[in-house]
């Protein structure tokens, strides 16, 4: 009798098996997407701005990882580091890329620090549109020769990709992120020569230098 009782206590009931199966099934439905988009910003066809600058890509920028919703994590660090390096190398005549903030700048140099401010995503299941969408918001912190912050320039970018039949959500979201990174590049390449606070640097770089 005691053996029988012991068996009854230790053996999981059919309800337990059923509950476990349900939990596994429900977990299977809640997929977590982890994206690491490749950097695919080509070398731009633009005339380089005359002048010297330091591009500061700090640790947090190089390893940036965002979670725009509980099911999606995007590793943007590597892709955005490669993209901004390519873009600014094409944009500025004399560019140095650094990982640690320099203690001082050379005469005529400015420092640019890009920062990722916000990431938003949307899938067809949320918007009822037949596209995956990614929004990225960056800012460029601009420092003068004395390493004083003189301006912060904000840039928003957008990428979308069709909800192609037979491609996974992660692949579609990755393509949308890559498109958004290319859009950041387009925005930067067009806006950078027009940033008002850089006009004095552009005009005076050869004579006085700095902001």
């Amino acid at each position: 009798m005691s053996n029988y009782r012991s068996d009854k206590v230790n053996r999981p009931s059919h309800h337990t098996y059923g509950a476990l199966l349900l939990v596994f099934l429900l977990q299977g439905c809640a997929t977590v997407t982890h994206l690491a988009p490749p950097s695919s910003v080509p070398i731009p066809v633009v005339a380089a701005q005359p002048g010297a600058a330091v591009l500061w890509l700090d640790e947090s920028f190089r390893t940036d990882q965002r979670t725009p919703n509980k099911n999606t994590t995007i590793d943007l660090g590597q892709a955005q580091t490669a993209a901004f390096t390519v873009l600014f190398t094409a944009l500025i005549d004399e560019l140095s890329v650094v990982e640690i903030q320099p203690e001082q700048l050379a005469d005529g140099q400015i420092m640019i620090r890009p920062r990722l401010r916000e990431v938003q995503i949307a899938a067809p299941s949320e918007t009822y549109l037949n596209v995956y969408e990614v929004w990225l918001k960056y800012s460029l912190q601009l420092y003068n020769t004395r390493l004083e912050l003189v301006d912060e320039w904000f840039m928003s970018a957008y990428g979308k990709t069709p909800d192609n039949f037979m491609i996974s959500r992660s692949k579609a979201m990755e393509r949308a992120t890559t498109t958004a990174l290319r859009d950041v590049g387009a925005k930067l390449l067009i806006d950078f020569p027009r940033i008002p606070s850089l006009s004095s640097w552009r005009i005076s770089h050869s004579s006085e230098g700095g902001l």
Partner: peptide
């Protein structure tokens, strides 16, 4: 599109 980047991106 790559050869002429960024001039044939959707934005521009």
């Amino acid at each position: 599109i790559d050869a002429i980047y960024p001039w044939f991106e959707p934005r521009v």
